[in-house]
Design a protein around this nucleic acid. Structure first.
Lengths: 208, 208
DNA sequence: TCGTCACGATACAAAAATGTATCGGATACA
DNA sequence: TGTATCCGATACATTTTTGTATCGTGACGA
């Protein structure tokens, strides 16, 4: 991987197609069991293209994960910004409004689970993950706090609420994915969110 | 792997040492990046021993995970049964009493994260995991409900509480492992448990 | 104590995966 | 349109990993 003086448009495309292929292959086989060649096959390239764009599978994994998770956070911000906040009347309403903005997809969950395990072994990746988790909390919490304020509830400790929401999301996601067709699990997930929001905010009476 | 008529004592030992080695190797390298030979080296055997005891790495992974997680649940039951429940006076006390019984070890977390991802790809493993999660909930919830009753709080929906506790445990575990030296994260974890226990139980006034 | 089978070591063949070095067509820029 | 160089394909050497087949030691039953 020598740094070129001039870069072509084509390069960006192949790089992207490799990143996309990686997501699919890693989700299907698991990162650990995936090979350079599998990713290249899926993308429609040979290993030559790969080694010209990435140093190793680890390198690709990190790049792919960072790209997809920033996209995910951007999408989240977007969804939160364009919500119809008019009809929210109670805590349950807040849950129902916010929940769809944070999707639970098993493909991405599998990737993240493995990336997390990977990150726990690698200090550099660990801080990448930490930053990411904070970004998610930072995107959601102010919005949720604002919605709660709208229905007359104050949020004394936004940081604590943020950590709680992320934890509940992560924890319940596995349960839902293990039994995707069991509506009771999903219902209990929503319930838990509702109770947590209630527990972390205080009724102040008047609506703003 | 032909089924032998006679089985020796030695066999059980080597099998066990392979299982133990697997835990270490998988935790260090990740299951996906581990090889049969690495496990054998660690255990002090050659591949001959491996193929005589297991059909594949997948087979070993499943066997190891089932063994360790039953041990874990047994330990949990044990710890819960021998608790000193006398000094519990409030919800916080319940949290402080129960929390140490459910350890947060990053080695085991890494294994579980990868096993979960693996299970989400494999329907057979999926139901294994589901059963396990239920067993954990089933072990903890009655004890917690009893403790809550002791301080005058009733638990209307134990199943919901169980799912909530498991989710909160899983979700906060990552956060704590990502920042093991940040006491604030651990404190917020305990806070969340306290609030959840409170939210899922109702004050009935009198103590039993 | 002897004979038999189990069990793990060793040897071997085959396959899979990696990384590099080189080549030729494509692409940017004059 | 010419030309320099970028970029991905191809070819190749090497290493890793796998699974099986065979052998010798030692355990177990009679």
């Amino acid at each position: 991987m020598t740094t070129p003086k001039r870069v072509t448009k084509r390069r960006g495309e192949t790089r992207q197609r490799l990143l996309d292929a990686a997501l699919e292959v890693f989700a299907e086989q698991g990162f650990g069991r995936s090979t350079v060649e599998q990713v290249c096959d899926r993308a429609g390239y040979t290993r030559g293209a790969f080694y010209s764009n990435f140093a190793s599978l680890d390198d690709l994994f990190l790049a792919m994960w960072e790209q997809r998770s920033t996209e995910l956070i951007d999408g989240l911000r977007e969804a939160l910004a364009t919500m119809d906040t008019a009809r929210v009347k109670d805590v349950r309403g807040v849950v129902e409004l916010v929940t769809p903005a944070v999707p639970v997809h098993d493909r991405w969950y599998r990737i993240t689970a493995e990336f997390t395990a990977h990150a726990l072994r690698n200090p550099a990746l660990r801080s990448v993950m930490k930053t990411r988790e904070e970004a998610i909390g930072g995107a959601i919490t102010p919005v949720v706090a604002a919605l709660l304020a709208k229905i007359g509830r104050e949020t004394p400790d936004q940081v604590a609420l943020g950590q709680a929401l992320v934890a509940v999301h992560d924890g319940t996601a596995v349960q839902c994915l293990l039994e995707p067709d069991n509506p009771a699990v999903w219902r209990r997930r929503a319930d838990l969110f509702e109770r947590v929001l209630t527990a972390y905010s205080i009724e102040t009476g008047g609506r703003t």
